[in-house]
Simulated scan of single mutants.
Amino acid sequence: MPDNPDPDPLELVHLLRAASVEFGLRQAEFGAAHGMHPTDVRALICLLDAARAGERATAGLLAARLGLNSAGTTAVIDRLERLGHVNRFRDGADRRRVLLQVSPEAVRMGQAFFGPVIDGLVDLLGTFGPAERAAIHRFLTSARTALTP
């Protein structure tokens, strides 16, 4: 299929949605393979994103990112902790605060499952020039902002 030099904006929105659906299906497969609810998988992703951004992950941060109330957030954290996917520990700077961290084993499980997909996408992005990657980055960043309540 030849590249369209000026794709229809609505087509791009539909392609973004389709890619999001595919990501969701892979997340569901991962969750099913490891006995996790879809919200548990989203919670792990949120915690990994927070770690990558250098944010201190708390139950409050997780609740806000997942749109859950306190009871729902506690249930997710309890399930993930029982499965050995999340560890809770006291913040060294503020002993009253409990921080959350994805366990090394859960990271390994995620890398084993999602690593090939991520590697393929990184390879694909390598076929785009710097200006194209900058445009993709700008679009995805703006789309995320537009989709965030």
Rank of each mutant, 00 (worst) to 15 (best):
R56P: 14
I118F: 11
L61R: 13
T148Y: 14
D119A: 09
V122L: 13
G72Y: 03
L48Q: 14
E105Q: 11
D8F: 00
F128M: 10
L16D: 05
N4R: 03
V86H: 03
A63C: 01
L12G: 04
R97Y: 03
L16P: 00
Q111S: 06
P149W: 15
P38S: 13
V102N: 02
N69L: 13
M36R: 06
G84H: 06
T141F: 06
T127K: 03
A18C: 00
R65C: 13
L62N: 06
G120C: 01
V86D: 04
E22D: 14
S20H: 12
A18I: 12
G126N: 03
V86W: 02
Q27C: 12
L125T: 13
G92I: 03
R133C: 06
Q27M: 05
G92S: 14
D3A: 12
T58K: 02
A75S: 14
R79Q: 13
G54L: 07
G35S: 11
F114G: 08
L83K: 05
D78S: 14
P9V: 15
T58N: 12
A51L: 02
V98L: 02
L147G: 11
H137V: 06
H14D: 15
A53E: 09
P104K: 07
L68Q: 05
A59E: 00
L61N: 11
L121W: 13
A51K: 14
L16W: 03
A18F: 06
H85S: 10
L25H: 13
G67Y: 05
R138F: 09
L100R: 10
L68P: 09
A135S: 11
L80G: 04
G84C: 01
G110H: 07
P38N: 10
R108K: 12
